[in-house]
């Protein structure tokens, strides 16, 4: 079996084969021998380099969450080249969106405003923490899709910019 997992915007290629004593796992072209494997609903255990690992996991959609000895990982399974991980971005092209769902506390600009890169466009609050959304580049505010006091969703365009063309 061959998988691609994305972790923090980095893709790892993993190939897994049954071997005599257990499994052979190739990660980014490096081989590892896995023995003493046992798997259960939320925990797997195996020996890697003679060390025993007990790893808790849970899955939702294409994401697998793992706890490895106090360190946490969220791996996203990539399927072909269609869906590339979560790739959460604050700016996509000419719109600005919040990374987290929350309350739109303040809109600092109006449609038609000329904004410079880094200008604070809006403030979104979640869990009592305020995040400022800033303009990714210079531009003119084309559209504002929410009003103050609205609950905004994550990754939905909040402020759309018309980018000034360079001559």
């Amino acid at each position: 079996m061959k998988y691609k997992f994305e972790h923090l915007n980095k893709t790892h290629t993993v190939e897994i084969k049954k071997s005599d004593g257990g499994y052979q796992v190739t990660i980014d072209k490096k081989d590892y021998d896995i023995v003493n494997y046992s798997g259960h609903d939320n925990i797997v255990s195996f020996k890697l380099n003679k060390e025993l690992n007990n790893i808790y996991y849970a899955q939702a959609g294409d994401t697998i969450y793992l706890a490895v000895g106090g360190d946490y990982y969220s791996l996203v399974l990539e399927r072909g080249n269609v869906f590339k991980g979560t790739g959460a971005q604050v700016q996509k092209g000419d719109s600005v969106q919040s990374l987290m769902p929350g309350l739109l506390v303040k809109i600092m600009v109006a449609v038609g405003d000329d904004v410079k890169e880094g200008t604070t466009l809006a403030i979104v609050e979640a869990m009592k923490m305020q995040n400022e959304l800033r303009a990714p580049r210079d531009g003119i505010v084309k559209r504002i899709n929410y009003k103050e006091g609205d609950q905004v969703e994550a990754l939905k365009p909040l402020v759309e910019l018309e980018i000034l063309k360079n001559d």
Binding site: M1, F46, V68, D71, Y73, L75
Partner: peptide
């Protein structure tokens, strides 16, 4: 800051889960 030096173990575990626990997925 998170070092994520156990990424190898995490990837091994994830591939074992995908292969043996939910083959349908794979």
């Amino acid at each position: 800051i998170p070092q994520h030096d156990k990424i190898t173990q995490a990837l091994v575990a994830a591939s074992l889960v995908k292969t043996t626990r939910n083959a349908v997925f794979a």
